[in-house]
Design a protein around this nucleic acid. Structure first.
Length: 293
DNA sequence: GAACAGGTGAAGT
DNA sequence: ACTTCACCTGTT
């Protein structure tokens, strides 16, 4: 029912089931730092919101089930989860090497989501010099304060507020988020979008370099945040966002990642490396205790 | 209390 | 062009 992207999508009684999930691992997709809006529940299912819609996902027997109708899957989630990209083929663009291979071995299962530009921009402005639990908390507060309420599976979820909603509130209304010095950056970006000075849809047509420059013109958006938006919202797969974790990996691996970071699939590699660094490091092969007889 | 956390921009060489 | 530093806030 699918072309050669490795996935098998089937309608099921419970929703839409995806088989062939070697490259569709929920834990990795939502814990590799690209999205902060899907949370794991006690039963192991993930609940989250994107593009104004709530979704529950669960994994069982090597298949992932999305609790939605086939129509909604086709209209929204197929694209969001990048289901038409063949990740095995994408990986072939990553030059092999000990470091890249180790990262792939640990991170395989990650997909690069196609997230909403405004949400991605805001989220990564808030991410700067912050840790993941706090980013999640601040984003959740932002949605609770300004988003729209959704009732889903007996829980209350909130959409990510659009720029106009944030722009129409005074900057001081962001204070309860405890976002610190990042709050004015978010508010100014919201005003720029609301006033039409920044059209996040239209700039999607720009080539990567110009798109990056446009984003970096915003106060509080530097190279790293811009690159995250390029990769996670505009799906520029050749962009390799460099944060402290990636910097650490590059230092430790020396030249081993140099070629790979310039490849067509550098962004995917970046996610593999980031996830691997967070889960024991790329040194798994080096950590093998050496005998000193 | 100090240091640090998925950076950025301003100010100093 | 490169280096240094302050910055909100919560956690260790």
């Amino acid at each position: 029912m699918q072309k050669g992207n490795g996935l098998h999508v089937l309608r099921s009684r419970d929703g839409v089931t995806i088989g062939g999930t070697e490259d569709f691992d929920l834990d990795k997709i939502f814990d590799c730092g690209q999205s902060f809006r899907f949370d794991k529940r006690l039963d192991g299912a993930y609940l989250g919101v994107a593009f104004g819609r709530a979704l529950r996902l669960s994994e069982s027997g090597g298949a992932v089930t999305l609790d939605c109708g086939a129509d909604e899957f086709e209209a929204l989630w197929r694209r969001y989860f990048d289901c038409d990209t063949d990740y095995a083929a994408l990986r072939k663009a990553i030059p092999p090497g000990p470091a890249a291979d180790a990262a792939i071995a640990v991170g395989r299962g990650i997909r690069i989501l196609r997230q909403a530009p405004w949400e991605t921009l805001c989220t990564f402005i808030l991410s700067q010099m912050n840790n993941i639990p706090r980013i999640r908390g601040i984003v959740a507060s932002l949605c609770r304060a300004f988003g729209e309420k959704l009732d889903y599976f007996g829980e209350t979820l909130y959409t990510f507020p659009d720029a106009a909603r944030i722009a129409s509130a005074p900057e001081a209304a962001l204070a309860p988020l405890r976002a610190g010095y990042r709050a004015p950056y978010v508010h100014r970006a919201a005003v720029a979008v609301a006033e039409g000075r920044l059209d996040l849809e239209a700039i999607g047509a720009l080539p990567t370099g110009a798109l990056r420059q446009t984003l970096m013109a915003l106060d509080g958006v530097g190279r790293k945040v811009a690159d995250c938006v390029l990769l996670f919202a505009y799906h520029r797969m050749d962009v390799f966002p460099e944060d402290v974790w990636i910097g650490r990996a590059l230092r430790e691996e020396g030249e081993a990642l140099a070629a790979a970071r310039g490849s067509e699939a550098a962004g995917l590699l970046q996610q593999y490396v980031f996830y691997a660094m967070k889960h024991g490091g790329l040194g798994a092969r080096k950590a093998e205790p050496r005998r000193i007889d």
